[in-house]
Design a protein around this nucleic acid. Structure first.
Lengths: 223, 223
DNA sequence: GTTCGAACGTACTAGTTAGTACGGATCGAG
DNA sequence: CTCGATCCGTACTAACTAGTACGTTCGAAC
């Protein structure tokens, strides 16, 4: 019985999965583009190949749909973070690689950054409901901890800046490029995501984090 | 006629100004807390000492009110930027002072950062309507240009990072503390605005920008 | 071929929200 | 006093939007 039921479910589930994925893809774009309150369930439905009824069939409510969208994009960045290979790199080059991987992820996943901005406007009240995100998404830190530990032990890195601080600095830089792109471009007439600037901007965050960690503040000669 | 009318207007205007300021103050908090679409005009009205009718009397529409709020907070940061005194400071110390002033402004004006985030979600479409903001708010750059020029001429600063880049780095760091506070705290269990961290976080952005500008990338010995 | 449950579509509702019609208060001017 | 302009409050509406009632299709199992 369970076998036959599984077979039927497998077939149904395949269609259902496609439908759900279709909804999530469209919903991600709609929420990212308009915010939680500004997003329209009718608009999401219109852009899928299914109907609003199906959205509520699979996701129960606008809020649950939003949460599913959030978990999906956080799962994607977890994948990227786990895929960073630092191998035998020296601590400074490892830091640079981590910074560049974060920069590349954020600039190529703009919906993620927009959703994080939106979530912060709402004081992370939805994100706090997701055990998965809270449990799994701090893993970026363990890699950084190991690298920094190596650098400090070798006497190359300052020891008063920890892994969470470094992650904060890198994230801040990469997030800003995407999150504040439009106001920055309007006021300073420079598109931070202009492909012509991409290489130098990727290099800059590496320079910054390495220069900061290898510098001895106070021991520098005056300019 | 114009004189008497002015006198009457002065009296009326005083009351009117108080009412308008009251509305703007409350609207700033409401928009910052809930986003543009999530903000409720009725809620703003309820929190002022006046009524919804007055909001439409003075500001015509929800969108115009939002724009007025935006212009007000941008005017405030202009004031702070113009008040930064670098006097005879050496370029590196001047950079540090500018970074710390930006950091202090952003951490003490969280509504400003939230409104900028919201405005970016909406692709800066409202901000682009404000000639004042577009014309006046790039002035932060001129001070930085002068300082960097001095540092480069003295051979102390690298010359491939310009004033807009430096402003971007400083803003990114300061904005992130406020804008992403809630998701960061939820995931990494660290409140970036914790008063106990304030001093070291203020120092870190100074360290970073000075270390980056005084460093010669590539000329550093390997770790 | 009938049954059963999962997947789906149409048409609707209840509640909310931006915006307004209309009338009233206030106050200086003449 | 009373006129007129500015300032203000109450009560309403038109439009929108999340969510649902109800019916249909489809495919596998027996």
């Amino acid at each position: 019985m369970s076998e036959s039921s599984d077979v039927r479910e497998d077939a149904s589930t395949a269609r259902a999965l496609r439908t759900k994925e279709d909804i999530l893809r469209v919903a991600t774009a709609e929420f990212a583009a308009n915010g939680y309150a500004g997003a329209r369930v009718d608009e999401i439905a219109a852009r899928t190949r299914t109907t609003k009824r199906m959205i509520y069939y699979y996701f129960a409510s606008k809020e649950s749909l939003y949460l599913a969208v959030l978990e999906r994009v956080y799962a994607q960045i977890r994948q990227v973070e786990r895929g960073i290979q630092i191998g035998e790199l020296a601590p400074d080059e490892a830091l640079r690689r981590i910074a560049e991987a974060t920069y590349d992820h954020h600039t190529t996943h703009q919906a993620f950054i927009q959703l994080v901005s939106i979530e912060n406007i709402h004081r992370a009240e939805h994100l706090k409901q997701s055990d998965t995100i809270l449990r799994e998404n701090a893993t970026a830190i363990t890699l950084l901890e190991e690298v920094i530990e190596r650098g400090v032990r070798a006497g190359a890195f300052r020891d008063d800046v920890d892994a969470v601080d470094v992650h904060m600095v890198i994230s801040a830089y990469a997030c800003f490029h995407v999150a504040n792109r439009h106001t920055f471009a309007a006021i300073f007439d420079r598109d931070m995501l202009d492909p012509h600037l991409q290489d130098s901007h990727r290099r800059l965050i590496g320079d910054m984090i390495v220069a900061t960690m290898t510098d001895r503040p106070g021991a520098r000669p005056p300019v």
